[in-house]
Each structure stands twice: as structure tokens, then as C-alpha cells.
Amino acid sequence: MSFLIYILTNPARTVLYTGVTNNLERRLYEHGEGLGEWGKFTGRYQCNLLIYFEISPDATQAIAREKQIKNWNRAKKEFLINTLNPNWEPIDLQTWSG
């Protein structure tokens, strides 16, 4: 089983949310519906656009990476996002080719 570290943003691209999951499609749905504790933040700030993700082979590494990214300043997070998605286009998992 692999784990994914992901970053969401809002339509204005002013807020960034970093999370980790073993099922990205399910988590995106939960964020979009405002489910769970995490939904409170993402719902309040309308963070429902996936703009970055990376895969990790195990949960321990994924959680450590999530914490690392969460502790970064905005500029460093933007640099990371730009390596995968320089235009910050919302990523559609159904059509994403990487």
C-alpha cells in the first residue's frame, strides 16, 4: 500500500493545506463535503483544489514528510508545488498524466 502527501488550495490560491492519506480520491471527497475535523479547515477556506501530490511507500515516511512540508514557509511550499505543477492548475486524478 502506498501513501500520498498532498497539497490543496482555494480558488484564489491564497491558502495551502497539506495532508496525507492512503486513498486520495476518498480524501478529496471528504474535504469537498466538509467531513471530519480536517473538513472544518478546508471547508472554511474553500481548499478543494488539488495542486500537488507525491507518493510515499509507507505511512511512517508519509507522515514525516507531511510534517516536514507543514513546517515550511509559504515560499518553500510554492517552490515544491512549482516543480510538479508550475501553473497551479487543479489536478484531476482521472486525467492526470504526471
Rank of each mutant, 00 (worst) to 15 (best):
V20F: 00
I51V: 15
C47Y: 11
I5S: 08
A64T: 01
L28N: 01
T9A: 09
T14V: 08
F79Q: 08
L84D: 03
W88F: 12
Y45D: 12
T83F: 02
E30H: 06
L49K: 11
A64V: 02
L28V: 01
T60C: 04
K67E: 04
A12R: 09
R65Q: 10
N82M: 02
Y45N: 05
Q68F: 14
E33A: 15
G36R: 07
I5M: 09
I81L: 03
E33N: 15
F3K: 06
F79S: 07
K40N: 14
Y45C: 05
A62V: 00
W38T: 10
L16R: 12
L28E: 01
A62I: 00
S97W: 07
I55E: 15
T42L: 11
F3W: 14
H31C: 05
R13I: 08
S97A: 11
R26S: 04
I5H: 06
N71T: 12
N82I: 03
T21L: 06
I69E: 00
R13W: 11
G36T: 11
N73A: 14
A59T: 05
E25I: 05
T14F: 02
E54D: 13
R44K: 14
I69M: 00
I91W: 01
V20M: 05
I69W: 00
R13A: 05
E30C: 09
I63N: 04
K77H: 04
G39T: 06
I51M: 00
T42Y: 07
W96Y: 15
K77N: 09
H31R: 02
G39N: 10
G39P: 10
T9P: 02
S2D: 13
N71K: 13
I81G: 04
W72L: 14
G36I: 09
I51R: 01
A59K: 11
T42K: 14
N82Y: 03
P57F: 10
L24N: 13
R26W: 01
N82H: 03
K67Y: 07
S2H: 13
E66F: 01
A62T: 00
W38A: 08
K70H: 12
L93K: 14
G98Q: 04
A62C: 03
L93F: 10
F41R: 07
L16C: 07
E66D: 07
W38F: 09
T18M: 12
P57K: 04
W88I: 02
D92Y: 11
G34H: 01
N71L: 12
E25F: 03
G36S: 09
N22E: 10
E89A: 11
L16F: 13
A75T: 12
F79K: 05
Q68V: 11
